[in-house]
């Protein structure tokens, strides 16, 4: 019989991945091979912090293969849906695929169930997806996401970090992941304060990413030659997910650089 294959009509799952695993396993990514390590692009530094209205997440744009810069313009922070964002550090191919699957997973659930997942539910779903790709982590193709958003029960927003085994941890002020996360977190510890307004939060994020790019070769700084700014998204309960204008980020980066130049040459 033509038309829908039987699994389409009989499936009771609200998860796209679960459905695709039985109905169309060839469509899902099947990445193996630790021998790829060192030959595939990797990221990155992602920072995320709470602001007066909600959440801000920012990521640099550089991807590296070993000591070669593979891309100057990679986007590592993406909206997961219209009230949450996800940023990923690690092997680029796996990371981008995981983001695409996670976005679809949330949309699929919403359409099948006619209701949205709670923020905590989304974070748990992401954790189980990571657990499912544990084999990849063992082979060195690890990806570590940072997930944040708002929902009705937490209009101020929540930040969740994860480890490669699928462990999920809520962060209450700020967090950073990736190869440059050490310097970035150091900057956040000094600069972050409760109730940052929108402009101040962008400045803090740019400062943190600048520190990361200063000390970590796999993290890119603001690129004034190509006019490539870090990606920054904000989430609040009124406007949902919004991307900060790259022109504004570059202007902020320019101020940061000017201030640091003055200090370095004084």
């Amino acid at each position: 019989m033509a038309g829908f294959p039987p699994a389409f009509l009989t499936s009771t799952s609200n998860s796209f991945i679960e459905f695709a695993r039985t109905a169309a396993p060839e469509a899902l990514p099947r990445m193996t091979g630790s021998e790829l390590h060192g030959q595939v692009p990797e990221g990155t530094t992602i920072v995320c912090l709470k602001t007066a209205n909600g959440i801000l997440m920012a990521g640099d744009r550089r991807a590296t293969i070993g000591n070669v810069i593979a891309s100057h313009a990679m986007e590592k922070v993406h909206p997961a849906d219209d009230s949450s964002v996800i940023g990923i550090a690690g092997t680029a191919g796996v990371a981008l695929e995981l983001i695409r699957l996670f976005q679809l997973e949330l949309e699929h659930y919403e359409k099948i169930e006619g209701a949205r997942l709670s923020l905590e539910g989304k974070a748990n779903r992401l954790a189980s997806m990571l657990r499912g790709s544990l084999g990849l982590a063992m082979q060195g193709l690890a990806v570590v996401p940072l997930f944040a958003g708002v929902d009705d029960s937490s209009p101020g927003g929540q930040i969740f970090s994860f480890d490669v085994t699928g462990g999920k941890y809520e962060e209450h002020r700020f967090h950073s992941i990736g190869s440059g996360s050490g310097p970035a977190r150091g900057a956040l510890k000094k600069l972050w304060e409760p109730g940052l307004d929108a402009d101040a939060a962008v400045t803090v994020a740019v400062e943190a990413l600048f520190d990361a790019s200063d000390d970590d070769s796999a993290t890119g700084g603001p690129d004034f030659v190509r006019r490539i700014a870090p990606t920054i998204f904000t989430v609040d309960s009124v406007g949902g997910v919004q991307e900060v204008d790259p022109g504004r980020i570059l202007a902020t980066a320019d101020e940061v650089v000017t201030r640091r130049t003055r200090r370095a040459q004084a």
Binding site: M1, A2, G3, F4, F8, L9, S11, F16, F19, A20, A23, A24, A27, R100, L101, L104, E107, H108, K111
Partner: peptide
Amino acid sequence: RYADLRGYSYHRTDVTARGLTNAYAQT
């Protein structure tokens, strides 16, 4: 499921009402 699988395998713009209608009609 049909639309999400097709959109994931190819691209969002490759999901069409005509394809979906055919699948419904055959079923």
